[in-house]
Simulated assay, not measured.
Amino acid sequence: MKQYEKIGWLDHVTDVVTGEVIQEGTPVSQTNMNHMDDGIFANREAAILHEAQIAAAQQEIKVLKDATLNNMVNNVFLKNFDSVTAVAITSGIYDPVARKIYV
């Protein structure tokens, strides 16, 4: 992902007495607003992806921890499928609530 470059917004400042512009402000423009909008959207998408990756890692850690505590370290395998329709279950059951296949 491309690094977000800050715009560095500046206030438009004028001298109250003379009306002289002391500092030109950053224009509120379509370009600047879309730049912010794109950055917010990209960060949101990254957060959603990271949340899914963290959840998957937590699930894997739990499976491995449970297997270790129950001394079943030789019988552990993990496989993620996009859907269970792509899997032919010949032995065992699928629990749609827990989203697990028990064999």
Rank of each mutant, 00 (worst) to 15 (best):
L49C: 03
A67S: 11
N43M: 04
V21S: 05
T18K: 13
N80Y: 14
L10V: 02
F41D: 09
A57K: 13
W9T: 01
T14P: 01
K79D: 11
Q59S: 10
P27E: 13
Q53D: 08
K79Q: 14
T18E: 14
A55P: 00
A46S: 14
G25S: 08
T68F: 15
N70K: 08
E45L: 05
V13H: 06
G19F: 14
N75H: 09
V76S: 09
A88H: 09
D15E: 12
D15W: 09
P27S: 11
S29D: 04
V28A: 06
D82N: 11
M72S: 09
K79V: 07
N75E: 12
F41M: 07
V28D: 08
H12P: 01
E20Q: 05
E60I: 04
I40S: 08
A46E: 15
N75P: 01
I48N: 13
F77V: 02
H50A: 01
V21H: 04
V16I: 09
F81H: 12
F81K: 05
E45G: 01
Q59R: 14
A56E: 15
T26I: 06
H35N: 03
A55I: 02
L78I: 13
D66I: 00
V16W: 15
S29N: 03
Q23D: 03
T31N: 02
S83F: 00
I89M: 06
G25F: 10
D66Y: 08
F81M: 05
A57P: 00
L78E: 06
L69D: 15
M36C: 13
I48W: 07
Q59N: 10
K79Y: 14
V76H: 07
V87F: 15
G19M: 11
K62C: 04
F77W: 11
V63H: 13
D37G: 01
E20M: 01
L78S: 02
N70F: 03
D15G: 06
A88D: 11
P27T: 10
E20C: 02
V87M: 07
E60N: 09
Q53W: 12
T26G: 10
A52S: 08
S29R: 01
H12F: 12
V87G: 10
G19V: 06
V28I: 07
S83H: 03
N70E: 09
H50L: 02
V17W: 15
Q53L: 08
V63K: 07
I40H: 08
V87K: 03
N75I: 00
A42D: 15
I40E: 11
L69N: 14
A42I: 02
D82G: 14
L78G: 02
A52F: 06
A86V: 03
D66T: 05
V76G: 04
G25W: 06
G25K: 03
I48G: 01
I54A: 06
R44V: 05
E24V: 09
A88R: 11
A42M: 10
F41E: 13
